[in-house]
Write a protein that binds this DNA or RNA. Structure first.
Lengths: 217, 217
DNA sequence: GAAGTTCAGATTGTATACACTTCGGATAAT
DNA sequence: ATTATCCGAAGTGTATACAATCTGAACTTC
C-alpha cells in the first residue's frame, strides 16, 4: 500500500477542510473517527493534529480531545493589521522582481481582466477566488520564504472567517480598480507606491467588511 | 509519576536548547536517544519533534531522522525586514496602552537604566538579555496575541543566529540612546513616532551586525 | 424530586511491537 | 585492488496494547 505519502495527504486535506469551513469552527476532531476514516492508526493522526495545533488551527485539551478553533471578529481585527503591513512589505519586495519581468506583469493583468469579467457577471465566489490568486501571485514573487509562510498562515485564518456571501457588490467594483492600480504601480517599479496601494486595498476591504457586519447585526 | 506534564517540559527545554544553540544547527536528533534521555517512549518525542518542525526549527527527512535547521545570514536578511515592520506595528499598538499606564513606563525606564549600567560594565551578554526583555515587554503590551506569537517565532530564529560576542561595544552606546528615545516617544503617546523609533533601532542593529560580519570575513 | 456518588464506556496519553527503509561493512567476483 | 552485491544492524513509520482520565447515566441519599 501507499506507505507514508498518506500522512501528508491527510494533513493537507484536513487542513483545507478546516480552512474552508467544511469542518466548521468548534467541531470536535476524534482520533478514532479520523483514523477509521483514513484507514490508518491513531499514531499518524495524532501527529497531524499536533501540526495543526502548532499552526493555531485547532486546540487540544488534555484527555478531552481536539477542537477546531473558533475565529471571531476580534481575531480578524487583530489579524488584519498584521496582514496589511506584511502584504505591503511583500508588495514592495516583489516590485523589482515583477517590474523587471514582463511575463509576470502579463499574468497579473490577466488576473485583473478576469476579475473584471467576474465582477460584471456578479460571480462573487469566483471573484474572491481570483482575487486570492492575484495576491498569492504577488507574495510568491517577493523572494522571501519566511514572509510567504507567514502570509499563508494569516490568509488561512482570515479565510476561515470570511463569509463569502458577505462581500458587497459595490465593494467589488472598487476592488477591481484597486487591483488595476496595483498593477500600474508595479509596472512603474515604484516599490513604495506598490506598498501603499496593496495596503489601502486591504484596508478598504476590511473596513467594508466591518461596516457590513455591524449593519447586519 | 508525573504523567504528561513532562511532554510540555520536553518541548520547551528542547526548544530552548535549539534556540540558544546548546544544540547547534545541523545536529541530528535521534528519537531513541531523546526518549532514553527523558525516560519516555518514542511516541511523545515524535510529537514534540513534529511541533518543532512546524515552527521551522527542525526538518524531518523520511527514514533518515530529524536535523536542526541551519540558519544563515541569508535567512536573517529575510527575517529582519519582517521583524522591523512587525515590531514597529507592535510599538504603535502598544503606545496607547503603555502611555496610559505610568507603571508600565516605569518598568521600561528601569530596563533602560539597567542597560546603561550593563553597557558601562561592558557586560555584553547581560546587555543583550536586558535588551530582549525591553522589547519583549513592549510586544506583550501591544494587545494583539497573533502579533505576539509571530514576533516570538521570529525572535527565536534570529537569536539562533546572533553570535553573542559579535556585538560591538560602540553599538551598545548608541543602542542605549535609542532605547531612551523609544521610552520618550512612548511617554508622549505618539504611536507613529514610537513605530519609527522601534524600526530604526532594529534597522541600525541589523546594519551594524551585517557590517561587522562582512568586515570579519 | 434534587443533589451528590459511583461505575462503566469512551477517549486520550503512553509504551511496546512490528514493518519498512537506509546505510555501511563484509564477502565475492572481476 | 576495485567494484559489485548482499546482508544485517540501526533507525524511522505505523499499528496495537495498555494506562490514565473524562463523561454521563444509573443509583443512592436526603
Amino acid at each position: 500500500m501507499s506507505p507514508q505519502f498518506t500522512i501528508e495527504r491527510i494533513y493537507s486535506e484536513l487542513r483545507q477542510q478546516i480552512v474552508n469551513r467544511s469542518i466548521p469552527p468548534g467541531s470536535k476532531l476524534s482520533e478514532n473517527l479520523l483514523s477509521r476514516k483514513w484507514n490508518v492508526s491513531r499514531t499518524p493522526i495524532r501527529e497531524v493534529l499536533r501540526r495543526l495545533e502548532s499552526e493555531g488551527l485547532v486546540t487540544s485539551h488534555r484527555y478531552k480531545g481536539v477542537l477546531v478553533n473558533l475565529i471571531t471578529l476580534e481575531d480578524v481585527e487583530q489579524l488584519y493589521p498584521i496582514r496589511i503591513y506584511l502584504e505591503g512589505l511583500a508588495g514592495k519586495l516583489a516590485t523589482p522582481i515583477i517590474s523587471g519581468d514582463p511575463e509576470k506583469l502579463k499574468v497579473l493583468e490577466k488576473f485583473c481582466r478576469e476579475m473584471e469579467v467576474l465582477s460584471k457577471k456578479k460571480d462573487i465566489e469566483g471573484y474572491i477566488a481570483k482575487n486570492n490568486e492575484f495576491h498569492y501571485y504577488i507574495w510568491h514573487s517577493c523572494g522571501n520564504g519566511w514572509l510567504i509562510k507567514i502570509l499563508e498562515n494569516l490568509n488561512s485564518q482570515v479565510n476561515r472567517f470570511i463569509v463569502k456571501a458577505l462581500h458587497v457588490p459595490h465593494r467589488i467594483d472598487r476592488s477591481v480598480c484597486e487591483h488595476w492600480d496595483i498593477c500600474e504601480k508595479l509596472r512603474m517599479g515604484d516599490g513604495k507606491k506598490v506598498e501603499r496601494a496593496v495596503q489601502s486595498n486591504h484596508r478598504r476591504a476590511f473596513e467594508d467588511l466591518k461596516r457590513e457586519l455591524t449593519n447586519r447585526s
